[in-house]
Amino acid sequence: MSFLDYVASRWQQLLVDSYQHASMVLQCIVLATIVGVLVGVAVYRSPAGAAVATALSSAVLTVPSFALFGLLIPVLGLGVAPSVVTLVLYALLPIIRNTIVGLSTVDQPVLDAARGIGMNRFRVLTRIELAMAWPGILAGMRVSTQMLMGIAAIAAYAKGPGLGNMIFSGLSGLGSANALNMALAGTLGVIILALLLDGVFVLLGRLTTSRGIRG
């Protein structure tokens, strides 16, 4: 069967897998953003704290995703849980680092002005600092999303959701007529999905970044 015929005949399954793949990645990104921004806010004032947070999250990136994933299976069981934790951990570095950098580079005069007109600490943080750091944070989310799209394919190893299942089916189906088609569908699916999500992020960036600070 040719590749296009294959896709035409299995498009529903592919769509479900794609949706689950993207949905898992995006939920993990949201989680990672919440955790990452909180950590960033907590440590950006302290050089030592920032160094430790950055070092830890970048060390995570060094570790092979398969190894981390595997290690979490005995702890969290099979299915979705080890995938989610792995993905969130991997997504942390770009977000934490960009949060710290973004918050640290807000001009002192701007902060002075905000305090001067009577904003309290919390308001200054949310309405000024985070708002100005937002483009950087969004960029970090974008980078992490790209990373996660590839790593998420591993989830299928432990019966997790996503396009990885297509790839693994292709692997175990060696010799059968559709093995190559399945692997190709899985791989290309991830690539296309990644590009689509990247475009969404660009759009999101344009929409949510105030014109005054757009680069």
Partner: peptide, 21 residues
């Protein structure tokens, strides 16, 4: 950059299948 978005396991499997196992 587009290539980087590909899952590494996908590339491995594809190459494996293309070389007939």
């Amino acid at each position: 950059n587009i290539g980087q978005a590909a899952p590494s396991v996908g590339l491995l499997v594809l190459f494996f299948l293309l070389t007939n196992g």
